[in-house]
Nucleic acid binder design. Structure first.
Lengths: 332, 332
DNA sequence: CTGTTAGCGCCTTCAT
DNA sequence: ATGAAGGCGCTAACAG
């Protein structure tokens, strides 16, 4: 089933069929109706590959994410998908599991697949080979969650938010405030959040205990239990993401610690699930859906203008502290 | 950058370049090395659209899922992605948010996109227009989670598993066992699980209280609270999926009910997150990752044979009850 | 308003 | 072992 068959059945030329679909105004209403009817009867759908080959535009966006097992990125992807669909674009998501080699493979694969542009969450914009490749090929892209002066990014102020969290904990009377994070080398966000934490501690005149760094992909409840068993035990724990916060609460419970009475726990990300837990997660809420949406909007605007998104078009979206139940005042 | 440029730089014909990549044995070792070097230097990657147009094979699989916000499907997608990648296929996932209209749109979009085959989770195989369309177009497909005699499916025995859950609760001394489910019209799994529940109740000589049906996409904690406020309150709650179980536990806590002492809660799906909660979720564990993996394997085998997957190749994978902490004996 | 036609990049048969 | 050439389905000049 192709355009020729439709043309023959409708008794018109292939150009007319093509126009009927792509420029409905450029064809007589009667002809258009005829073509549409015939096409529908035959179940004709335009061949995307042929169209892409001819126009050099695929109307497909590539999306590179660490993982979909973290609801943060699933929520973001939903925003990406909806916005892309509204703009007439399809998306091809690829996950990297926080591995740099996968990042590069993903980008190469997507370039070969003729995507018109990409949204990506990379480990580290500064050192990313994948981004080099994109620039070299003049592929339009926008980074989500990442923050870097020389790339177009949509993100929140991770550093500032983290410092605020510490300040808030300090106001609640906490002084032994520890931090737990995913592998910092695999995430600039983790680094920024840690920096913010250190700033917050410094501003409060507190010394930061050793940070606990665990892999992103594993559960690590055991490591958390060992960490919490050390003395002096922290009274508050700031977790670099919500999954870690959930696991920290689990680790605490396993050792008979009550959250928040014995240990205050604060997360980062604002995944929807956090509100359905007991205790409800106290966390820094990022607009995950909107991060996806704005990333696509930025990208599509550039595509429409035939340019590459500029670094100075970067967006810093607002975050907010979500009061939950996992965080309370320090024991007297 | 295309095959012609590479050919010119290498001083060979385009046919040789093409062969060097697709049939390395069919070209002299020296020539192949030369072509590979030149291609690498120039950063050449074959144009997927042109290749697809020419070969009528895209090496892309479409994936249609209800949502990625439920970790069940995120876990499954991970299995799909890994297996597809291992077989040299890319995937294009599309979510439907449990809406039938979206299901059809997704299938049409993917057909237009020239996918070689599809993995899908549909609302109801019996009535699905999307599946009709696939059959009409002779598109190879495999259903995941769905179970139906006349379609190729990879699933677990939802009905049997649900009946087992009831039997287990009965053994624990429960008699007022209620069920809560997502919109049944939107999911054959929900229907099967409900049927299994009714069977289990019947087998135990118990009468089933009215089922609570809530939308899949919303949190519904309020509806759950109202439900639990009714008298006589159930002592055990069987939830059609893990997200509902999590929300039920939340609803119970908000009303001062302890889980499992005052209310036993059992879920269904076996999402990894369930093990990190307190109480840890008692649930029917499905091999989500493997459901994805086997679906792709079934599909790729058919593709390799140039046929469409047959209904009698359907797979029923084993499930298992995962002992958690949200389920205990009935109060004496 | 409609038709004719070249060519997007690639693979593949047919020659050599 | 390598090269020449047609055509996959479509769009966009250009012509009428």
């Amino acid at each position: 089933m192709n355009i020729q068959i439709v043309a023959r059945h409708a008794g018109v030329s292939v150009a007319t069929v093509s126009r009927a679909f792509n420029f409905p105004d450029k064809v007589a209403p009667a002809t258009r109706a005829l073509v549409e009817r015939v096409a529908a009867e035959l179940g004709y759908v335009a061949n995307a590959s042929a169209r892409t080959l001819r126009t050099q535009r695929s109307r497909v966006l590539g999306v590179v994410l660490p993982t979909l097992l973290n609801p943060t990125f699933a929520e973001c992807l939903q925003g990406i998908a909806q916005t892309a669909a509204a703009g007439g674009y399809a998306i091809v998501p690829v996950t990297t599991d926080y591995q740099l080699a996968e990042e590069e493979r993903a980008v190469n694969q997507l370039i070969a697949g003729n995507v018109d542009g990409m949204i990506l969450v990379v480990s580290n914009p500064t050192t990313s080979q994948a981004l080099k490749r994109l620039r070299a090929n003049a592929v339009p892209y926008v980074l989500a969650y990442n923050k870097h002066a020389s790339h177009p990014c949509v993100s929140v102020d991770s550093e500032g938010a983290s410092a605020e969290v510490v300040a808030r904990l300090v106001r609640l009377g906490h002084r032994r405030i520890a931090m737990v994070t995913g592998t910092m080398a695999a995430s600039d966000r983790a680094q920024q959040r840690y920096r913010g934490y250190l700033q917050g501690m410094d501003a409060a005149g507190l010394s930061a205990p050793p940070v606990l760094e665990v892999p992103f992909v594993e559960t690590a409840v055991d490591a958390l239990r060992h960490y919490l068993a050390e003395t002096p035990r922290p009274t508050a724990l700031f977790c670099s993401n919500d999954l870690l916060a959930i696991r920290s609460i689990r680790a605490a419970s396993l050792d008979g610690l009550r959250v928040p009475q014995d240990l205050a726990v604060v997360g980062f990300d604002g995944i929807a699930l956090g509100q359905d837990l007991t205790p409800a997660l106290s966390t820094v809420m990022q607009p995950n859906h909107d991060i996806g949406r704005h990333s696509v909007e930025l990208l599509l605007k550039a595509l429409a203008d035939g340019v590459v998104p500029r670094a100075d078009a970067s967006l810093l979206l607002p975050h907010a502290f979500r009061e939950g139940e996992s965080c309370a005042a320090a024991p007297a």
